[in-house]
Design a protein around this nucleic acid. Sequence first.
DNA 1: TGTACATCAGTGAACGCGCGTTCACTGATGTAC
DNA 2: TGTACATCAGTGAACGCGCGTTCACTGATGTAC
Lengths: 214, 214
Amino acid sequence: VDNPPGRARNPRGQGGRLRDELIVAAIRLLADVGDADRLSIRAVTNAAGVSAPALYRHFPDRRSLLRAVVEYGFDAFDRALDAAAAGTTDPFDALRRRCLAYVAFAAEQPALYRMLFTATSLGPKAVGTYGRGPHPGAASFNDLVNAVQRCLDAGAGSPHTSFFIAIQVWTMLHGAADLRTAKPEMPWPPVDTFVHAGLTALGLARPARRTHRR
Amino acid sequence: VDNPPGRARNPRGQGGRLRDELIVAAIRLLADVGDADRLSIRAVTNAAGVSAPALYRHFPDRRSLLRAVVEYGFDAFDRALDAAAAGTTDPFDALRRRCLAYVAFAAEQPALYRMLFTATSLGPKAVGTYGRGPHPGAASFNDLVNAVQRCLDAGAGSPHTSFFIAIQVWTMLHGAADLRTAKPEMPWPPVDTFVHAGLTALGLARPARRTHRR
DNA sequence: TGTACATCAGTGAACGCGCGTTCACTGATGTAC
DNA sequence: TGTACATCAGTGAACGCGCGTTCACTGATGTAC
């Protein structure tokens, strides 16, 4: 991984650009090394084409960089799911599309997905904790609760609250996403088949129509 | 973490004992450090009361130790689930008990659980791959398929095969176990409520009896 | 019964490495006068 | 218009550390004769 030879120093007042470049380089590198623990400052700065100490102008320490990566990653995750759901007005179809996009995101960027969903706030580990403010994934979960609620409003048949059902859906999605990454040697059923079966079992398939069109 | 002061050298021919002591020490340490990546040879041998090079008499390298930990961990996992299911003859109750024991195992030893279920065969990472022979978790999954099949034989109502249903159950359990560890700040519903709801949704609750006893 | 020797569990020092972080610095560029 | 200076993005060398692994070794114990 050589330095991009042509990187020029940012002009005065534009030093902040390097901050974003470092985050993007970290995410790119994450796909190669497979684990946030392997994201060393030296590797990230080298991938961004600067020397290691240059990082400290933008982040006080390594953990701060990783936290920024997590926030950036959740942003990308939310955008991917919203984009998938934007293609339909039917709440059941929207939820199904969100679910498929969820698993697809994890399949495309497994190391980033794990960093967002399993490395965060795990004791003294790499990323550290988010003491103040909401957890960066809170918005994503809230989107899911809302998507489920729209299905309930449209007549979905579940005895549970939208919160409880959202937990059920999230659990299924995380299990599917994480296990498929962890155990690639298993003969997993196709994702859409699996997601459809899961949503149906949870009462989140479209209910039978009361009337037929003529 | 000081050396246990009293450790005596094993007698001739009993050098193999240290092998087990190292594995046990590694699992104990795993609970403290929280991640298999942090299981350094020096930390493990120190916890076992020997010098670092002593490990090489029993394992060719670090990865071999970690693989032995995984095998040992799957053994303990299987025993915990079997013990939980041994208390009943009803297949639905047996499956439910297995599920609760699954999540309990993960809650009690989160780092070990992760090592078994998410670190294995993840590219060039800590543990390495299991090229030859069956995956050490294969037996556990097979037990689950059998437990599901017994429910089907007892009249469970699912349109799917026992393999597919076992994938559904496993996905739910892994999702629940892993997310609860990763996001402890979430207001998770009680495990037994959640597992009961999940098994019911999957058609794995006891079917209504045809006849009543008089 | 005594002794030389082979076996073997484990040690202590050392290696080269990549790490996060610090420090004093360089050199281009905008600004004040 | 020219020049001294402040600003600031980024550098290069160095630090102390823990790591996996190697090497030559120690010293207790069982065995052959």
